[in-house]
Design a binder for these strands. Structure first.
Length: 353
DNA sequence: CCAATTTGACCTGA
DNA sequence: TCAGGTCAAATTGG
């Protein structure tokens, strides 16, 4: 019961930090509209970041240390699928698994990494189901889920047949918030596209230390019911002119754990997840989370982004959960992107499709 | 014509 | 037995 109290306190602090972050963001927005001095804006941005970092530290327990639930989470970590089934294991092994499919389909998916994302789209954008994450998916099924108002769509990588890519994802509209989609990714992309993306991403730079921090935080999400997203980060650009294409960028999720950051935190989520899994059930907080893929990690500090409560996002298989929310006024240029923009990236042609 | 989606049947694990 | 996940034939769309 002690624990519960401390959790409540912690949540309060967190909420307050997040609120503050939101307020600051709003201030910033208004400053933007009134073309205030750059200093003012910078200062606001710094405050916002600080606020989020603080919130994050509350989550990770690296801050005031009031986070008492972390181990609990760690324990749950073991729910993650066999670390040897992916990550540093060669994708080929999975492919060969496929060879002996027939009846092994379910087994296979069970041994795959999986994580969940909650994507909030602004209403009226009609983006439903088209949350482009850079990979091409092919729908192979849809099911009504018990207790859910909306059906769940099942997608697999288009290159499954040609390249044996085993990545799959599920998309389901949230009951609570129809503008939110819960995406559950399973498996690692082994298709060319995956490596292309990886290469592109490799070109990005960032702050690795922060990345690790984010990673640690992300590890929490599934257990603590906290989700991370960029909502709070997207402090600005009320630029409603943003085209729908831009809308997609916030949704450029990591479709594969093998990938690292893209433009947002969600990506390392996958990466880190993989890393941690690869580490076996290594201690989350002490884990360097630096394994084979760590070179890809390149994230700007501000990707600490925001978190929200993800009540309904808990996934069965210990998926990582994150909320990526787009502000109602669709925008681009999340704060974390100051170092680069999507436009700077050379996406493979089909990526833009 | 080919690739993607739809949808009911089927399979599996709990 | 049932819910979730996948298959695959039929359908649709470019």
């Amino acid at each position: 019961m002690e624990k519960r109290k401390s959790m409540e306190r912690e949540q309060e602090s967190l909420t307050s930090e997040l609120k503050q972050g939101k307020e600051l963001a709003e201030q910033l927005m208004s400053h933007l509209h009134h073309s205030s001095s750059e200093e003012t804006r910078d200062s606001l941005i710094s405050k916002i970041l600080f606020s989020y970092e603080k919130a994050l530290s509350l989550l990770t327990g690296t801050g005031d240390g009031s986070v008492g639930e972390s181990k609990h989470i760690t324990a749950r970590e073991t729910m993650l699928e066999s670390p040897t089934s992916f990550g540093n294991s060669s994708p080929l092994s999975e492919i060969s698994d496929q060879d002996c499919k027939h009846k092994n389909v379910f087994k296979k998916t069970k041994t795959m990494p999986s994580w969940t994302e909650e994507v909030k789209v602004s209403s009226g954008t009609g983006l439903d189901g088209s949350l482009d994450d850079g990979y091409s998916w092919r729908k192979y099924g849809q099911k009504n889920i018990l207790g859910a108002n909306h059906p769940r769509g099942y997608y697999r990588c288009t290159h499954r047949g040609t390249q044996g890519c085993v990545a799959t994802k599920q998309v389901q509209k949230s009951d609570a918030d129809p503008t939110t989609f819960v995406l559950t990714y399973r498996g690692v992309h082994t298709c060319n596209k995956a490596s292309q993306l990886a290469r592109v991403k490799q070109g990005l730079k960032g702050n690795q230390n922060k990345t690790l921090e984010v990673k640690k935080a992300k590890q929490f999400s599934p257990e603590m019911s906290f989700s991370f997203g960029r909502a709070g980060l997207r402090v600005k650009t009320e630029n409603l002119d943003a085209r729908e294409d831009d809308i997609f960028s916030p949704f450029s999720f990591p479709s594969t754990p093998i990938e690292s950051e893209m433009v947002g935190d969600h990506i390392f989520c996958s990466t880190m997840m993989e890393n941690n899994l690869v580490d076996g059930y290594a201690p989350i907080f002490g884990s360097p989370a630096a394994t084979f893929e760590s070179d890809y990690l390149a994230v700007s500090p501000c990707h600490m982004s925001s978190f929200g409560l993800a009540h309904d996002v808990q996934t069965s298989e210990s998926g990582l959960t994150e909320i990526i929310s787009a502000p109602t006024s669709v925008t681009n240029s999340p704060i974390g992107d100051f170092d680069f923009s999507i436009d700077d990236l050379e996406f493979p042609p089909e990526y833009l499709a």
